[in-house]
Design a protein around this nucleic acid. Structure first.
Length: 1112
RNA sequence: GGGCGCAUAGCUCAGUUGGCUAGAGCACCAGCUCGACACGCUGGGGGUCACAGGUUCAAGUCCUGUUGCGCCCACCA
């Protein structure tokens, strides 16, 4: 191949298109459980199928792929498990919104099955898009194993886990205040709620003391205050503090404590608070104590508008320093009041809301059916009319809104399934404190532990349709075909047959074909719950259900028949028999729970369910526990913690040994990227413009462990190519007009046909220019090498005796030894930093080495050597080897470019190993050594550092050469000597350095168009010279360039004077340091010596600067 | 309210256990069509390391406080 015809710019699109299919077709990404090599496993944090991936995902997945690719090269049996998450509420909300926007339909118009079918379609579409994005980024996932949290297998795993928790008594049913979204009619979790201040009011009401409980001298009313007056209809008590004086004192003491440590500014404010507190105490304490006494006596209050009376109670929740000191208690609609109820069960709870947000039958007739807002108005008006409205204050209220529907949240008491967290949480805490799971960066362990330490039970039900339906059947009693499952009756009946009901049901289930270990039951005060493991789920159940319905009636019609005789019936018969159930007969009725499980319930299983659990697959045995989890910090609690406890519970081992928390990608304003904010960037835009390698390298380069990554982004006009900043204003617009050419283009928000018809403007960031430029630099270094490897002799340098060719250790020149030494160090550094997730360090090390050492020096220097027949082959061998190692080290970050180069290199230089300076240590090593002739760089061995070639002396000698070259170049530039002018220079230095520099003459010519006329201890300066003084390995090096033809005396003097001043300043500072007794005595001897040496050096340099000045 | 971070050049970021004149990329300035690369080469300018104290022979680095910003959690009759 004629390598000269290779394009001078790296064609990323072509490389991507060429190599990804190649890798896939060769099956490099596929892992088998029976592969004997040690495993290295990562499970992907499954992206939500809500939408396409943005740069945050790109970062996360790039970092995973870098590790996976390195480990693959290191010889591990590498598995990267891909997949997506069904993301319950988020996905359903997106699809519902789309449904409404496009067809003006709600989910109720479609029904459960219809809506779920829609969401599946959406899922298919976005899953395909997500997987395609990952492939275009170059991710080397084992695609054949692609998983989905809601596929059949994972559904089975979910049922299995739930069933075992249920059976263990770790799942229970309880009442709980949920954030009720009255629009979507579902509970939403706390993290799906946002708070927004709205203007509201603070109403003060007085509740009369019941006439019968009034005593002279005591208050006739208790005043309470609320921001939600309609909730008074659900009040079940009013509370006052049991010891208001003590409570006041406690608050006072806290204030005093603060005051002690307060700054002047805070003091005034705190003192004012203190005064207010004391005033208040004086004013209200007697009355509060009276109320307290009344409460202890059991006084009742009349609850206005309702005709009910409620008790006055004492509870510490009532803060004497707030409001009136008395607080209304509405357990069904306020979380704190709910807690009060738990402490005072006798007060009860009254739910006043219907799921749609209207008031229900528990409130007086006139309020029923009103929405909260209307009810509030009505209640306030009626309270005023009743003369119990004391006062209305304006107040700003931080009101909870649903993230999905943007409507206000109503706290609502609902039945929920919970997972008991005590032991599970403890196990997950132990895993981290014992070091079995290591979190990097360490600081994130604290949040994990703190959160788990609260051991709050986990509410797992969601009132949604898209998700894993809870595998529990409510067993109620049904009187003769009427399906009213009247709770009280059921409870009563069940209570009566408490012992009997479960055993009865058990018989039926067994008769229905279920095995003993496939179902479990829980009986609470109200209901019998049955959890069924059978993977056929609904289907099996309906058969069972039919079976016992029919069975009951059969038994009824066959007086005296016993259970033993059921075998003679088959299902068909029972189905017909069921039609004739006598109306007075009590039979069981089973209804499946409507709720689905929290998405995290299924994602918690991800590391083991994707490997086959609950089956004991070879994969599970081989790849579990996985090696590392790479994810973002905001799901450490929601996801990571739950995976740990689920893994321990189900498999008996942690799901991963390490967790690496990535930084977050922020936009130019420091805000996190998200689709909803409109600041998300599609990685494909970046890939198209800069290439996948540039994207990946850029992201790795930004990944430091201390900071998030701010990434200002620009729109790129598709008409004229102008880039201009994405701002908070324009980032959500469907169409934007170019700032330069004024022509409009569309954005990701384009919905209307006329907008969509416009050309799409890409969102780009100049941050990725770094990676693109680097890729191009590498490409050209490779191109240069390929062109010049003509005649490369693979056998040259073979250690085999008698081999032909010009390579032998003795032929290695200084620059060869330098490069090999550096290569060993860089290999060590890159390996080490990547193992420790220090991606940016690895990227920077490679960037600096490749650009400033390999290209700027080694490659440059080979130019002079290729024309020297004696040197050509050695230079080719070392160049090819250097490029080979560099490509392998870069491959995890830049897979496409490195493969492209690898393949081309293979054409001209099929093997590129150099004999190791020392024999590698024998024994099983995972790290590769030579590249061999791997057919793809994906599976080429990871470079091993040939540490025997590390040589500090060589590196220092080379540094001296670099310094001299730099001095000559600098003089050229500062003297304004044209590039094409040949110049001469002399170097005064020790003999060893002169010997070193003498053979470098071709490089001075090559790289600085300069000829050394005199080298050595006695080398004098030309008459008219510009000079630099350097500190070499063996002493001072003076570089004098003959500038007689060019001298700009004024400029040179100015420069030298500036430099002299600089030196004087430094010398002064070191002198004073050394004059300081404390420093000399206390600082370590080596630091002092270092300073003394430095001083000598500086003085020497100063002297030569002064000499140069004199000469001018 | 509790917790965790961050603040270094115009911009985006490095700066490992305190120790040479604090670095990089982009942007900026000057000069370069020399056969790998103008997505390049050579050289240059640019920083009171947010502020105030403290520890130390020595502080960008450690401690305390202040200010500003971000995130997480809790709470708000």
């Amino acid at each position: 191949m004629d390598f000269k015809s290779l394009a001078s710019q790296y064609d990323h699109a072509a490389a991507q298109k060429r190599w990804y299919p190649f890798w896939e077709s060769r099956g490099y990404f596929h892992a088998e459980a029976n592969d004997p090599r040690p495993p290295f496993t990562i499970v992907i944090p499954p992206p939500n199928v809500t939408g396409a991936l943005h740069l945050g995902h790109a970062l996360n997945n790039t970092l995973q792929d870098i590790l996976i690719r390195m480990k693959r090269m290191q010889g591990f049996n590498t598995l990267w498990m891909p997949g997506t998450d069904h993301a319950g509420i988020a996905t359903q909300a997106v699809v519902e919104r789309r449904l409404f926007e496009e067809e003006k339909k709600t989910r109720h118009d479609l029904g459960r099955e219809g809506l779920v079918a829609r969401i599946w379609k959406w899922k298919d579409q976005y899953e395909a898009r997500i997987l395609s994005q990952l492939k275009q980024m170059g991710c080397s996932c084992d695609w054949a194993r692609t998983q989905f949290t809601f596929n059949e297998h994972n559904s089975r795993a979910v049922r299995e886990w739930f069933f075992h928790l249920f059976k263990d008594g770790k799942v229970y049913r309880g009442k709980r205040l949920v954030n009720w979204d009255t629009f979507l009619q579902t509970a939403v979790s706390d993290d799906e709620v946002f708070h927004e201040p709205v203007k509201g009011h603070f109403w003060h009401f007085k509740y009369p003391v019941a006439a019968k409980d009034r005593r002279p001298g005591e208050p006739e009313f208790v005043t309470i205050a609320t921001t939600r007056p309609e909730t008074m209809l659900g009040d079940t008590a009013v509370a006052v503090h049991p010891d208001p004086a003590a409570a006041f004192d406690k608050v006072g003491a806290e204030l005093r404590e603060k005051l002690l440590q307060a700054t002047v500014k805070e003091k005034a404010e705190l003192e004012e608070q203190m005064t207010l507190l004391l005033d208040r105490r004086a004013k209200v304490l007697p009355q509060l104590e009276q109320l307290r006494d009344m409460a202890k006596r059991g006084v009742q209050l009349e609850l206005p508008l309702t005709g009910r009376t409620i008790p006055l109670i004492t509870d510490e929740w009532a803060k004497p320093e707030l409001g009136s000191g008395a607080v209304k208690i509405t357990p069904a609609h306020d979380a704190n009041d709910y807690e009060v109820w738990q402490r005072h069960p006798e007060i009860g709870a009254i739910n006043i809301l219907n799921p749609d947000g209207t008031l229900n039958e528990n409130v007086p007739q006139q309020y029923r059916g009103l929405v909260v807002r209307k009810a509030r108005e009505a209640v306030v008006a009626d309270m005023e009319a009743a003369g119990v409205l004391v006062e209305v204050e304006d107040r700003e209220i931080d009101l909870a809104h649903s993230d999905r529907s943007k409507t206000p949240i109503e706290p609502y008491l609902a039945d929920q399934w919970f997972v008991k967290m005590d032991e599970l949480a403890q196990s997950a805490m132990d895993a981290v404190t014992s070091g079995r799971v290591k979190i990097t960066p360490e600081r994130y362990a604290k949040g994990y532990l703190d959160w788990l330490n609260e051991k709050r039970d986990w509410p797992i039900g969601r009132q949604l349709w898209w998700g894993h339906r809870i595998p529990v059947w409510r067993v109620s009693l049904n009187y003769g075909g009427s399906i009213t499952a009247d709770r009280n009756t059921v409870a009563e009946t069940l209570k009566r047959s408490q012992e009997e009901a479960p055993s009865q049901l058990r018989k039926y289930l067994l008769a229905g074909g279920l095995k003993e270990e496939e179902f479990a039951m829980q009986l609470d005060d109200e209901m019998l719950y049955c959890c069924i493991l059978n993977p056929l789920g609904d289907q099996a159940l309906s058969a069972v259900s039919q079976y016992w319905n029919a069975l009951e009636s059969a038994i009824e019609s066959r007086t005296g028949s016993d259970m033993a005789s059921i075998d003679e019936f088959n299902l068909g018969e029972f189905a017909t028999a069921a039609a004739s159930i006598p109306s007075r007969k009590v039979i069981f009725r089973m209804d499946r729970e409507d709720d689905v499980l929290d998405t995290w319930f299924s994602s918690a299983l991800w590391p083991h369910s994707t490997l086959g659990w609950p089956d004991e697959t070879p994969e599970l045995k081989k790849f579990y526990p996985t090696s590392v989890l790479i994810t973002s910090r905001d799901i450490i609690t929601l996801w990571v913690a739950r995976m740990v406890l689920a893994g321990l519970y189900n498999v008996g081992d942690v799901p991963f040994h390490e967790v690496y928390i990535t930084p977050k990608i922020l936009d130019g304003y420091g805000e996190t990227m998200s689709k909803s904010k409109g600041n998300g960037v599609d990685p494909l835009d970046i890939i198209e413009k800069f290439g996948a390698d540039a994207l990946r390298f850029g992201l790795a380069h930004l990944t430091t462990d201390t900071q998030d990554v701010k990434l200002p982004v620009d729109f790129e006009c598709p008409h004229c190519g102008t880039q201009f900043a994405q701002t908070k204003k324009n980032r959500q617009l469907p169409r934007i007009e170019c700032e330069k050419c004024g022509k409009p283009f569309s954005t990701q928000w384009a919905e209307k046909p006329e907008d969509k018809a416009l050309p799409r403007g890409a969102v780009v960031s100049e941050r990725f220019e770094l990676g693109r430029n680097f890729a191009n630099k590498l490409w050209n270094a490779a191109r240069f090498s390929l062109i010049n490897l003509e005649g490369y002799d693979a056998s040259a340098g073979s250690t085999a005796p008698g081999s032909a060719g010009g390579f032998s250790e003795n032929d290695l020149l200084l620059e060869d030894r330098w490069l090999l030494s550096r290569l060993a160090t860089v290999t060590q550094q890159v390996t080490d930093t990547l193992e420790r997730y220090r991606y940016a360090d690895a990227a920077r090390t490679l960037y600096d080495f490749a650009w400033n050492e390999f290209c700027s020096f080694y490659v440059e220097m080979t130019k002079a050597r290729f024309s020297v027949p004696d040197q050509r082959q050695t230079a080719q061998r070392v160049l090819a080897h250097g490029l080979d190692v560099l490509m392998r080290l870069l491959h995890p970050m830049m897979p496409f470019l490195t493969e492209e180069v690898w393949q081309l290199l293979g054409q001209v230089a099929p093997t590129r190993d150099l004999p190791a300076a020392v024999e590698p240590v024998p024994g099983p090593s995972l790290k590769g050594t030579g590249s061999g002739a791997a057919e793809s760089i994906c599976i080429a061995p990871w470079p091993a550092a040939d540490t025997a070639r590390q040589n500090a002396t060589i590196e220092q000698q080379f540094a001296d050469f670099q310094a001299v070259l730099g001095a000559v170049r600098e003089i050229r530039q500062t003297q304004n000597i044209a590039q094409r002018e040949e110049i001469t220079f002399s170097v005064r230095c020790d003999g060893a350095t002169a010997d070193l520099l003498r053979p470098m003459q071709p490089y001075f010519t090559q790289m600085a168009r300069a000829t050394a006329t005199n080298l050595g201890q006695n080398a004098g300066a030309p008459d008219v010279a510009a000079s630099r003084t350097l500190t070499g390995r063996q002493g001072q090096i003076e570089v004098h360039v003959d500038v007689s033809r060019f001298i700009d005396t004024k400029a040179e003097r100015k420069r030298l004077e500036k430099e002299r001043d600089n030196f004087l300043k430094q010398i002064g500072s070191i002198e004073s340091k050394l004059a300081n007794k404390n420093f000399v005595e206390k600082a370590p001897a080596e630091v002092v010596d270092q300073q003394r040496a430095k001083l000598d050096e500086l003085r020497g340099q100063l002297a030569s600067i002064e000499a140069a000045l004199k000469r001018l």
